[in-house]
Amino acid sequence: MCGGDSYSGMLTYAPVSEAGGVGKTSTAATLAVSHARAGHDVLAIDMDTQNGSLTYLFGPEYDRGDPEADNLVRHLVGRPKGAFADLPIEVEAGVDLVPSHNMLEDLHEFLLNEKEQAENFGEAYSMYGQLHRVLSGAGVRDDYDVVVVDTAGKAGPILYNALVAVRNVVIPFEATAKGQESIEGLDDLVDGLEASIDVDVGVLAVVPVGYKDTRDQREILDEIRGSGFPIPVVVGERGSLMEGCWKQQCSPYRYVEEHRSRKREYELDTLDRFDRLARHLEREAGLPTPETGTDEPEVSV
């Protein structure tokens, strides 16, 4: 599962992990802002049904429970109240966010209803192709260089719609036996999706987080690399930085620049590693990118 296609001339991916608590949403937010700081126009799409999602982290003024508000789900089921271009909210310079909405919790039921209606009229309907339809119809490739979709980790129509739309994943994981098992489980999930709907999904990067460079962790990384998965960087334990971001509702870059009275080397190192990861992803998509360090795997933290 390497090298899935995306929209031509764009970088599109979803940070995905079957295991919880690995910083999937923090990774999505940090990479989105890193891409923007490199000069790219970024669209982040929040398809996470949990309250602790990109919409909360970036903190825009938005009521995700407003039943009258136009939102992504309405567009997915063909009942928008306006243009897709009116959904995104600029949350940090260069980053537009399509916020989450509580209607996402019922997306499966909505899509089943649409499928049933289409079949009653003898029409084909792809339950998992609706996000791709919406993004293609909205011409996002004309407005954005990068699309990052953050979803719930579990299998289902939200994750499947994201994977069909972006065709690529970035996998944050803890370098433990449990974390390794979650990667293998995701591999099986994507293989099954590829077989059922004929879509190739590629792994752009595996990102060890909370890495301490122990012997067991090095062996796990060697096994993952031996399976053909790229590991451009590793990230050490940075809980206080990410907790600060959630508290202040901003990216790590803004947090360090605006909410730290003094620079902390380990935080600057973390941002440098995410920058190098973002440059790796941009190069994979053929986007122009500033040079930032090396693309070789890092094992010191």
Rank of each mutant, 00 (worst) to 15 (best):
H75R: 08
G129V: 06
Y7K: 07
G3T: 12
D222G: 11
V234E: 12
L87Y: 10
V73K: 10
L131E: 09
S136R: 15
E291W: 09
V16Q: 08
T292M: 06
D106F: 13
V149P: 08
N161H: 01
G228Q: 04
G4M: 12
S261H: 08
G129I: 10
K24N: 00
E265Q: 14
H108D: 15
E18N: 07
L221H: 02
I197R: 14
P80H: 07
V199F: 02
E114S: 10
Y125S: 04
E174C: 02
M103W: 05
L186K: 06
G94N: 11
A32L: 10
Y128M: 02
E267N: 09
E90D: 05
R218Q: 13
G82V: 01
G78E: 13
S261F: 07
P297G: 11
A44R: 04
A83N: 12
K24D: 03
T30W: 03
Y160F: 09
L31F: 05
R79S: 14
L97Q: 08
V301T: 14
T294F: 05
V206H: 02
A175L: 04
L54I: 01
L76Q: 05
F229R: 01
G153I: 00
T214P: 01
K212M: 09
D145Y: 05
L104M: 12
E114Q: 14
V201E: 05
E181L: 13
P15N: 08
L97V: 07
Q50V: 14
E298M: 01
V256A: 09
L131H: 06
R264E: 13
R218L: 06
S8K: 11
S53A: 09
G4I: 01
W246E: 12
V203W: 10
L268M: 12
T176H: 00
C245Y: 02
V203C: 12
M10F: 01
T214D: 04
E92T: 09
G59C: 09
G202S: 11
V203T: 15
I171K: 00
G210C: 00
D86E: 14
G139L: 03
V134W: 12
M242R: 08
A175M: 03
M10L: 13
D63L: 00
V164K: 13
V134K: 08
Y56N: 11
M127W: 00
A195E: 12
I220Q: 04
F84L: 15
D213S: 13
G21T: 11
S53D: 10
I224H: 00
S227R: 15
S300E: 15
Q249K: 15
P232Q: 11
L135D: 10
V16E: 06
R260V: 07
H280W: 15
F84N: 14
E284M: 04
V140Q: 02
